[in-house]
Nucleic acid binder design. Sequence first.
DNA 1: ATTTATTATCGTAATATTGCAATATATAAA
DNA 2: TTTATATATTGCAATATTACGATAATAAAT
Lengths: 108, 108
Amino acid sequence: MGFSKKHIFDEQQNQAALITKVLGHPARISIIQHISQNKCCNCNELVQNIGLAQPTISQHLNEIKKIGLLDQDAKGKNLFYSINVDRLNDCRRIINDFFVKTQINCCK
Amino acid sequence: MGFSKKHIFDEQQNQAALITKVLGHPARISIIQHISQNKCCNCNELVQNIGLAQPTISQHLNEIKKIGLLDQDAKGKNLFYSINVDRLNDCRRIINDFFVKTQINCCK
DNA sequence: ATTTATTATCGTAATATTGCAATATATAAA
DNA sequence: TTTATATATTGCAATATTACGATAATAAAT
């Protein structure tokens, strides 16, 4: 046990769960907020501001990349991250749809 | 290691992360949808429909309860679950705020 | 009182996540 | 070429999550 059973759920359910799972850690919420507030934010800046070790930040960045929320732009030795706004809006729509449909079902 | 560091994040960040973490599993997405579609849905019905063992469903229900999304109404030996719509809308607002603020920051 | 049905809890195994030190990699500067 | 800086990867320890069988608890029905 301990294994995943996502095959018994449909595409939409797995998609909504994947997005919320990635958002389901305060470090990742914080990283996304910080990048959005400081366009062209590099890894080091996140390490300084958030207070987690560099490998830990790097790991969380990878999780966020999994749902396509990050663009990156290498400039010299720096790697600047920014939010992919189109994908952000996709995610927002997917999660909001879940809430709206649930709410409508409850009240009819 | 392996321990949580949520004390380095603010209340809002932890709140958003807690809500999304609970939603971050397809079984819980499915359970919430099923309860919303069938008002007064008991545990057994979820077990039948979702295809996970009864203790597993019970465990997921407990996770969902942690963010106040479930009301329960004991009728005889049955325990009927329903969605707390006020709390659902709270959660929706909290998550949507996160998306909207992030999007605004990106584009100014 | 015994049986039946429903849900919760306990115990446990498998796996996943979180966090970091150490190290590797890559690029720029000296 | 050596040094410095930025990021990624590896390896590992601690903890959390997921899933389920077994069992307990509760309430109705016989």
